[in-house]
């Protein structure tokens, strides 16, 4: 099964934005890990994960996101998530992701609140 994520890193003041293209599943692990490590090696203190609104996120992908949250917690980095649909906002609340990463309705809101 072909699966690839393209992740662009953008710096917006204090906030490092990871613009994630594609579905988030267990297959996303190497792509997200590499993007996070790049951001971390550049000294990121505030990380914003931007996802596409209509993507498919499954439990494997949630597991990958939890790994990123573990790293950000260890390194005392602030992390936020934006771009997801209302359904995945609900799912992230159920699983508890929202205890560790704030969900924002837009990039603009996230950049304002995280700055």
């Amino acid at each position: 099964m072909l699966h690839k994520n393209e992740i662009k890193l953008e710096q917006h003041g204090f906030v490092t934005l990871l613009d994630i293209q594609g579905d988030i599943t267990a297959f996303s692990e190497p792509y997200l890990k590499e993007a996070y490590e790049n951001a971390d090696s550049q000294g990121a203190s505030h990380i914003l994960l931007k996802m596409e609104r209509d993507i498919y996120i499954n439990s494997g992908g949630i597991g990958v996101l939890i790994q990123i949250l573990a790293h950000t917690k260890q390194k005392n980095q602030l992390i936020g998530i934006t771009g997801i649909s209302d359904h995945f906002k609900k799912i992230f609340g159920m699983v508890g992701i929202t205890k560790f990463a704030k969900i924002y309705d837009s990039v603009e809101e996230a950049l304002e609140m995280m700055a």
């Binding site: 597991g63 939890i66 949250l69 573990a70 917690k73 699983v95 508890g96 992701i97 205890k99 560790f100």
Partner: peptide, 12 residues
Amino acid sequence: DIAKIIDNIDPP
């Protein structure tokens, strides 16, 4: 329990 998973106490 996401807190325990994040702290590597529970498996994901």
